[in-house]
């Protein structure tokens, strides 16, 4: 009896992991619990416990700034993830062709990822600045009608964010997918060559499906980045022009700091959490079922 108790509840192990217990329970359970709780209250600058039901959610979904933010995050997410994936995959495939100077190319493609998104945002703000960047340079070279100033136009500013996102993130996608490519058994390639399958066909029909794990990793990495996109927007557009590039992450911070409307801010934050919860629950279910099936087979 005593032995099994000791094994299940070894005191030093509990003491050593007190920080983990505090973080896991205190922050990720209780903290999130409070956020959700406050979203049902009329909290302004400080939290109150004056419950108003779903009123904050109704106001949230009536707020055009929030609606724009939600639209933006979908647009930005779909565009930047798909572009990143395609561009990163192409880079990875080309990098895998026994090219010269592979290390140099890898360093070049990957270095933006090492920098802060604030830096990325500022860099691209300048490159796209009509008075300083590409437009000015082109006009200076004699092409006086050249017009390229996406950041000052509410319709195009979000594309500029996408470009900056690609600049920052496609190198990582490339690195992850390249590792996946290199992990594919050399003999698969040989077998495909003996079978007379063209290289592009081997990539698409055989190798890409074998890289599911690498694709999933790159995809998850980018999804997390998209949901959290804050620094890039702040540095590059500040959410503007107007509210054209506002995003949920920016919206929440504005509500709890500048606009001092915690109740609605927490409602927005809860809405951000929702898709993450759905995806996590879904993938958890998939994993659990796969485990169970494997156990059943063994």
């Amino acid at each position: 009896m005593q032995r099994s108790w000791r094994r299940r509840f070894h005191l030093p192990a509990v003491i050593g992991t007190i920080p983990m217990i505090l973080v896991a329970v205190g922050v990720f359970v209780i903290g999130i619990g409070f956020s959700v709780l406050w979203s049902f209250t009329s909290s302004k600058l400080f939290p109150t416990y004056d419950f108003v039901g779903l009123a904050q959610y109704r106001r949230l979904w009536a707020d055009s700034r929030w609606l724009v933010s939600v639209n933006n995050i979908w647009f930005f997410g779909l565009m930047s993830i798909s572009c990143n994936m395609v561009f990163g995959y192409l880079l990875a495939v080309f990098m895998d062709q026994r090219i010269r100077q592979e290390d140099l190319f890898r360093s070049i493609f990957l270095y933006p990822f090492a920098m802060s998104l604030i830096v990325t945002g500022l860099v691209w703000q300048w490159v796209l600045d009509p008075n300083l960047g590409l437009q000015a340079a082109m006009r200076n070279l004699g092409w006086s009608s050249f017009s390229f100033a996406p950041l000052v136009d509410a319709n195009t500013a979000i594309y500029a964010l996408v470009v900056a996102g690609i600049w920052q993130g496609s190198g990582v996608t490339m690195a992850i997918l390249l590792a996946g490519l290199r992990g594919v058994d050399e003999e698969i390639w040989k077998a495909a060559r003996v079978d007379g399958i063209p290289t592009w066909r081997t990539h698409l029909s055989i190798v890409a499906p074998m890289m599911k794990g690498a694709f999933a990793t790159a995809f998850v990495l980018q999804c997390v980045g998209v949901v959290r996109v804050y620094d890039l927007v702040i540095a590059m557009t500040g959410g503007g022009p107007g509210i054209a590039t506002s995003m949920p992450a920016v919206y929440v911070i504005q509500l709890i700091t500048v606009r001092q409307n915690v109740g609605q801010g927490m409602a927005a934050a809860t809405m951000m959490l929702l898709p993450v919860l759905v995806v996590l629950a879904f993938s958890g279910l998939v994993l659990w079922r796969r485990n169970r099936r494997q156990e059943a087979r063994v």
Binding site: V27, F28, S35, P248, G265, L280
Partner: peptide
């Protein structure tokens, strides 16, 4: 804890 790796920061910041 792993769940925490995926959570949007905005949900935890105010608490």
């Amino acid at each position: 804890l792993v769940f925490g790796a995926f959570v949007p920061y905005q949900v935890v910041i105010y608490p």
